[in-house]
């Protein structure tokens, strides 16, 4: 800064500030502060209890003591009641010893009726605009041209009333519960992992919503809660578990868990139970007498995107 050609250091200048600088500075900071308040004002619209201290202090799933888990489950139960008007039977169900789940789907039998995709929505409490909105379903049924398995020419939006159509066949795709799962590798915070029975789960209370897992998944199996889930009280399935179908918070990723709240208690997944053609076979791969074990040993089995090295627990097979 030179004044009248005389060099003067700011060091001297800033010892005392001029009235002009003071006025300019204080006006600017005043305007700035009010601008800041205006910028943050939409946050007042956040729902009560959307971000709570206990949520912020929660530890990672694998480090929770049974007591802490009980308290979290209780909190979630109350939240479901106050926000959605339903008291769920919510619990944290652990994997059973000696069980490794696998799923096989018979491409010869599947007719593409999409009943599995609808059953998935009814079972898993995904967000929906209306009762028959299956955009958040964990199952996407592809209609493919006979003669090849080219996903690129597949159609997910075909009319399910007129199936099966001439020259077409159908391939439902859901989470493949990969043994070498790209999604769990991608997650920067270990919010998703593979359980002892092979199911890949997500802790919705831990996910930061970066969606790197969605980019990593070769099967388009993951869904994101772009907004707070919308679901009417009469459509809520109250049979819920912590790692599977409890109503998700906004801003987290979710996916198929082989209906672990059912399958870990000896029931079949909802999509299998509803299938009218018996195209779906689910079971314990570690049990040598199970049907799934028989199929994997004796049928012509196809693994979708085998070249991506994911080693999935979901198989397709052919009858004839």
């Amino acid at each position: 800064m030179t004044e009248n050609g005389q060099p003067r250091t700011i060091g001297e200048g800033v010892k005392g500030i001029s009235r002009r600088t003071f006025l300019k500075g204080s006006t600017a900071s005043l305007v700035g502060m009010s601008g800041l308040v205006a910028a943050l004002q939409p946050l007042l619209k956040l729902e009560r209890g959307e971000i709570t201290l206990s949520d912020l202090l929660q530890k990672h799933y694998k480090e929770l003591s049974p007591n802490q888990m009980d308290r979290i489950v209780e909190r979630l139960r109350q939240k479901c009641e106050s926000e959605y008007g339903v008291v769920p039977n919510l619990r944290d169900i652990k994997p059973q010893d000696g069980v490794g789940f696998a799923y096989a789907l018979n491409l010869t039998r599947c007719v593409g009726c999409r009943k599995c995709a609808h059953a998935c929505i009814a079972e898993n409490n995904q967000s929906r605009e209306s009762a028959d909105d299956i955009s958040m379903s964990y199952i996407r049924v592809l209609e493919l041209d006979k003669g090849s398995i080219n996903l690129e020419t597949s159609d997910q939006y075909y009319d399910a009333e007129t199936v099966p159509r001439e020259g077409k066949y159908y391939m439902p795709v859901q989470c493949h519960q990969c043994r070498e799962s790209p999604c769990t590798k991608a997650c920067p915070v270990n919010a998703t992992w593979q359980e002892a029975d092979g199911i890949v789960t997500i802790d919705y209370n831990w996910c930061i919503g970066c969606r790197y897992c969605m980019a990593a998944c070769p099967y388009d199996a993951r869904r994101f809660n772009w907004e707070k889930p919308k679901i009417e009280a009469d459509q809520i399935n109250p049979d819920q578990s912590y790692l599977s179908n409890r109503i998700r918070p906004k801003g987290v990723v979710e996916k198929c868990t082989f209906c672990l709240h059912r399958t870990r208690e000896g029931k079949y997944p909802a999509c299998m139970e509803v299938c009218p053609t018996g195209a779906r076979v689910f079971g314990n791969i570690l049990d040598p007498d199970s049907e799934i074990n028989y199929i994997l040993r004796n049928k012509r089995v196809y693994i979708l995107k085998e070249d991506s090295g994911t080693d999935p627990r979901f198989y397709y097979f052919f009858d004839t």
């Binding site: 915070v189 831990w206 930061i208 919503g209 970066c210 801003g251």
Partner: peptide, 20 residues
Amino acid sequence: VDLGRPDRFHHMIPPFGKFN
């Protein structure tokens, strides 16, 4: 701003979080 849950930012910071 890309995070769905920016309130859980600390999950990336050891020792509060679990950094993969």
